[in-house]
Design a protein around this nucleic acid. Structure first.
Length: 333
DNA sequence: GACTGGTCGCTGTACCACCT
DNA sequence: AGGTGGTACAGCGACCAGTC
């Protein structure tokens, strides 16, 4: 997955730039990408920016907003292109972003919290309960000792691509023909998933007790919605005066273009207009009693609105194993 | 050179509201 | 009650920079 999906997306982005410039489509890009989607987006850009002088692919540099840059005599518009089947993730953030950027005062970072409650030791104990790991799993002195063993458990369970590991474990446990080895793997996987969920709920209890910094919550929401997704991009602006940031976002000319992968339909959003639609009053992070995601909400009691949902989860392998991360979603209006 | 943590853009699916 | 369309969000592998 991963790299493979990115490759066609990038080819489609590059193709869009070529087509929007009126250049001949590059055969390699046509092969690698989705020319139909590139054409739909290029057509839309040409009609939205009739006086465009050029469309550039922003490349993979993370210091630029968006994927494509439309040049007009008045300046540049940064275009974030998303080729989506449905919904869509707005951003992925590092696991400790909310505490690092001071949305909470004196709260423990997620990574530190896990250490403090002994999550790694509990997880190791569970992984050790399985007999019969292959000889090449690494020694416990390596962090990847965990990844190797988790990978092996997934192999034993025969989890298919895209399949939820937990549901596969349940399937195995419900299958009368499953071997004792498979059952053992399923039991351990489920125990780790439970442990991880407990750990997240405990962390949310901790966050709920912490004071919040409304200015930082509001700043965070503005920058994320307007395309400043990476730690570096956030860093660059975070300490500026909030009113300056709002002015920056209004003048940024950042647009989000979504191309539906099935229909080729193109829709466009101006994120700074979305933000201008909220009453920025009593802005805070709302932390549910049960659930693994938090929300940024704003507005007076009669008109509370969700600005962002932020899910705490782990990438790679399954929950609790490899790469803790936060996924950000902008709820539909 | 091996390993790690952080970050990237994106997918799959359970669930829910709505319709018949 | 069953079907369906949309959404929330849990989850994916790859890449890369930093460290030792």
């Amino acid at each position: 997955m991963g790299k493979h999906e990115r490759a066609w997306v990038e080819a489609t982005e590059r193709l869009t730039a070529r087509l929007a410039n009126g250049a001949d489509p590059d055969e390699e890009l046509v092969e690698a990408g989705r020319p139909d989607l590139a054409e739909a987006l290029a057509d839309r850009l040409r009609s939205d920016f009739p006086d465009a002088t050029a469309v550039r692919h922003a490349g993979n540099s993370y210091d630029s907003l968006g994927d494509l840059i439309v040049e007009t005599p008045d300046g540049e518009t940064f275009v974030e292109a998303k080729f989506v089947a449905s919904g869509g993730t707005r951003a992925n953030l590092g696991q400790d972003t909310l505490t690092e950027f001071g949305l909470f005062e004196d709260a423990t970072a997620w990574s530190d919290f896990r250490e403090e409650i002994g999550f790694p030791e509990d997880r190791e104990a569970l992984l050790r309960e399985f007999d019969g790991y292959p000889d090449d799993v690494r020694d416990w002195s390596y962090k990847s000792a965990v990844y190797d063993r988790a990978k092996h458990l997934k192999n034993v369970l025969d989890v298919s691509r895209g399949q939820n590991t937990g549901s596969r474990a349940d399937e195995v446990l419900a299958d009368p023909d499953a071997t004792e080895k498979e059952r053992e793997a399923a039991r351990i996987v489920n125990a780790i998933l439970d442990l991880d969920r407990e750990e997240k709920l405990a962390y949310f209890d901790h966050l709920r007790e912490a004071e919040q910094n409304p200015r930082n919550v509001e700043t965070f929401a503005h920058l994320i919605v307007c395309g400043y997704h990476t730690a570096d991009a956030l860093d660059e602006h975070f300490d500026d005066d909030l009113e300056d940031i709002k002015r920056l976002l209004e003048t940024d000319s950042y647009r989000l273009y979504e191309v539906n992968r099935n229909s080729g339909a193109v829709s466009v959003e101006n994120p700074s207009e979305l933000l201008a639609g909220f009453e920025w009053e009593d802005t805070r992070v709302e932390i549910p009693e049960d659930g693994t995601s938090v929300s940024v909400v704003t507005g007076p009691p009669g008109n509370r609105r969700r600005v962002l949902n932020i899910a705490y989860n782990w990438k790679n392998k399954f929950q609790g194993i490899q790469t803790p991360s936060m996924n950000v979603f902008v709820p539909e209006a």
